[in-house]
């Protein structure tokens, strides 16, 4: 059932983001092409200036739309009109939340990838020369000989993923808290979002005030590997708690009026 929900949610995501991702990549390509227009320098510069601005707008728009999408897919999809459809499907609330979460993560990562690709496309460098200048075989061989680097890279990716999960689950819980009230739901959600981050900081400072816990954290963070794993745990623990509360609210306190 989760896969079926994901199919539906990713279709909704694709309808919205195929256009914005496509626009970002297309503008990056236009920008790159304008740098090759040496024979009409003035026009080329003007177009390049325009595409620089347009690309900056697309990046900002992509970030804003990604956050708006995450908020809307949850608030409209589960707590708004669409909730009449989603909550009457033969699935559990946690499946609905997990599907939305996975889709939101893919959206966030997808936007990051598109932004990265756009920057590469914009870079006025000869790709062929760039790829030929690196000895890829040697690079891969060295990476495989030094597995620690790969583990660090994987941990770094996990840190980014954990940050994203915590960010999204905080948004979900803030919206769910707002849903418990009959008036000023958006304002309460916004205040809750800020309040939840303050809560996390206070809880951790309280927990770390215990010497035993502090000693454990110190032992775990003696090197980069341990530090990143600790960061991952520090972010995933509250995220899991937040998601559990979201599921409880959807199961017991849903009111689509």
């Amino acid at each position: 059932m989760l896969l079926k929900l994901l199919k539906y949610d990713s279709r909704a995501m694709w309808k919205q983001f195929s256009l914005i991702w496509g626009a970002a990549l297309a503008l990056a390509l236009v920008h790159r092409l304008t740098h090759t227009l040496h024979f009409i320098v003035t026009l080329g510069t003007r177009i390049a200036n325009f595409t620089n601005l347009a690309l900056a707008i697309v990046f900002v728009a992509m970030f804003v739309i990604s956050v708006m999408f995450i908020i809307q897919r949850f608030s409209k999809g589960l707590l708004g009109g669409e909730g009449y459809l989603m909550h009457t499907l033969p699935v559990r609330p946690w499946q609905l939340v997990l599907s939305k979460l996975i889709c939101a993560i893919v959206t966030g990562l997808g936007s990051c990838v598109v932004a990265f690709l756009s920057a590469i496309l914009m870079y006025p460098e000869d790709f062929q020369r760039f790829f030929q200048s690196v000895n890829w075989l040697k690079l891969f061989r060295r990476l495989l000989q030094n597995l620690g680097t790969l583990v660090l890279a994987a941990e770094f990716c996990m840190v980014i993923l954990s940050f994203l999960i915590l960010f999204i689950s905080t948004i979900y819980l803030a919206i769910s808290i707002g849903h418990l009230f009959s008036h000023h739901r958006r304002l309460i959600s916004l205040v809750s979002f800020i309040g939840l981050y303050i809560l996390i900081a206070n809880i951790y400072s309280w927990v770390l005030s215990y010497k035993v816990i502090q000693a454990l954290v110190d032992a775990a963070t003696v090197n980069a590997y341990g530090s990143m794993l600790t960061d991952i745990a520090i972010m995933l623990l509250p995220a899991a708690a937040f998601l559990a509360v979201v599921c409880w609210i959807l199961e017991n306190k849903l009111n689509l009026e």
Binding site: A12, K15, Q16, K76, G77, G81, E82, G83, Y84, L85, T88
Partner: peptide
């Protein structure tokens, strides 16, 4: 099979 008293469609 439930028919609500409002629309539940997404625009897309």
């Amino acid at each position: 099979s439930y028919l609500p008293d409002r629309m539940y469609f997404a625009d897309w």
